[in-house]
Amino acid sequence: MASQTLQSVPGEPTAAQHELSLEELARREADGQAYFDKVMADDSRIEPRDWMPPAYRKTLLRQISQHAHSEIIGMQPEANWISRAPSLKRKAILMAKVQDEAGHGLYLYSAAETLGQPRDAMMQDLMDGKAKYSSIFNYPARTWADMGAIGWMVDGAAIANQVPLCRASFGPYGRAMVRVCKEESFHQRQGFEILLELSHGTPEQKQMAQEAVNRWYAPALMMFGPPDDDSPNSKQSMAWNIKRFSNDELRNRFVGMMMEQVRVLELTLPDKDIRFNEETKKWEHGPLDWAEFHEVLAGRGPCNAQRLERRREAHDDGTWVREAAAQYAAKQAKKQAEKEVAA
């Protein structure tokens, strides 16, 4: 449900809430908190109209809207190659994939809207540069092999992140993630197959594939967020059953999966320090350049300006169309009402 304006049935007069005594308000808040705590303890779900701590609402709104923005901005590096896809089959696949990402953005904006923030306000924040999105989409897709590397590693990292989010404590977020994860399953495979085809192609094609893997490897690992000891909000998100695993846990697990898959590709990962730690039973990787991560996140990446400008342009060019459709709907509704009066 995306609506905040749902009416209540048994007629709890909302206006009357203004007149509630302070004690009554405090009692309701205590009841709400108790109920919320029980939902967390039972690992059950919070739904939009339930009482929730303001910080929980704020965290979710930020996380879900950032996720939605990432899907929408994330369309651009791949949309860039739709017109040049080297076979018609690949063109169809890529088009469907980029289109799916628009759908993911929509599912997620809907989930965020249930928290009381209209989509156009979120979109405005994005265009004003006030909202963040996944830093990786600020890197350019330089060659066709990037379509492979993005699908395999970027969608792969997204899936690793998102599968646990299907169990997020906020109902609409979890449900959106179930739908997204189902659709993502083809995204990673198509990327992997692009790379597989290239690595078994001509030497130039193989080199193109290797270079793309080299370029996207570190940004993909950074998609899991800062290291655990530098991730102040993670603990709270885990206590709220939004996050189920820490950034480093997910990242390490992902490195392990890539290590296996890269062998099938007959390519290498640009990291000499990857190893399986027999003691901890965990995969480890080499150091990541977090200074660069923060630079790009702060807006100083190769494509930040371009990505936002493109979004603004589409939005601005579309204004007259959205206005026209809204006007038309209003006129039709008015006509309908007049007809009913006349009858």
Binding site: A102, A314, T319, V321
Partner: peptide
């Protein structure tokens, strides 16, 4: 795709 008047 990525340039339409509205996401839908």
């Amino acid at each position: 795709i990525s340039r339409a008047p509205e996401l839908e």
